[in-house]
Simulated scan of single mutants.
Amino acid sequence: MARRRPLRPEEEELWKAVARTAKPMHAPVFRPKGPEVPAEFPASPVVAHDPPRIAPFRLGEKPAVPRPQTAPIAGGVQMDAKAFGKLTRGKLAPEARIDLHGMTLAEAHPELIRFILNAHSTGLRLVLVITGKGKPGTDFGPMPRRTGIIRQQVPHWLRQPPCGQAILQVTEAHLRHGGSGALYVYLRRSR
């Protein structure tokens, strides 16, 4: 890379005249400090890309953004927002519950369908399906073995016919009703 030669006096005067008329194309991201910045350039505003600051927090205050305790299993919120808020905070008590612990897939699927359809036909709105979290076990085989297979299958079964038409919302249960080992199933009004 070639070194620059010092400017002659007439070149320096021409450079100063051009620098006074120049307008920046973009706002500079940073402004270097030191002797390499010519004094004839006007000071430009520094554009800072600071991360958003967290508001100061005092003991006893609630956080500015509430953290959701539970999330819908599929899709968005289909039910009334006020009722959904009560549901996620565990303020609504389930009217009936089914425990699928210890069942095989072949036993659990028809039991779940029977339970959901009976609850819907009797006019219940909120039921609790306890699936359990699944046991983590030692896996010595060449293929990894999934744990909690009923827990994984129940949301799919609830979306499929004949249960899908009777259900308005499926969401993870509040900690007091089983947390991630249970599901709230909010049923549609029976006609």
Rank of each mutant, 00 (worst) to 15 (best):
84 F>I: 04
79 M>W: 00
92 L>A: 02
38 P>Y: 03
73 I>S: 02
54 I>K: 07
56 P>V: 12
93 A>E: 11
19 A>M: 15
38 P>S: 13
76 G>F: 00
22 A>F: 09
91 K>V: 04
97 R>G: 08
77 V>N: 08
62 K>Y: 02
27 A>W: 11
82 K>Y: 06
82 K>V: 14
77 V>C: 04
84 F>V: 09
25 M>W: 07
54 I>W: 09
50 D>H: 10
35 P>V: 15
92 L>R: 04
22 A>V: 12
24 P>A: 01
36 E>S: 14
55 A>N: 14
44 S>Q: 07
46 V>G: 08
72 P>Q: 06
39 A>L: 14
23 K>T: 04
83 A>T: 15
54 I>P: 08
73 I>R: 03
20 R>I: 12
43 A>F: 00
17 A>T: 06
49 H>P: 07
36 E>I: 13
37 V>T: 13
86 K>W: 03
63 P>F: 05
85 G>C: 01
48 A>V: 14
40 E>H: 14
78 Q>W: 11
63 P>C: 09
65 V>L: 00
52 P>W: 07
66 P>Y: 05
53 R>W: 04
34 G>N: 04
25 M>R: 15
27 A>L: 15
17 A>S: 01
22 A>P: 05
39 A>T: 06
89 R>F: 01
69 Q>Y: 02
51 P>Y: 00
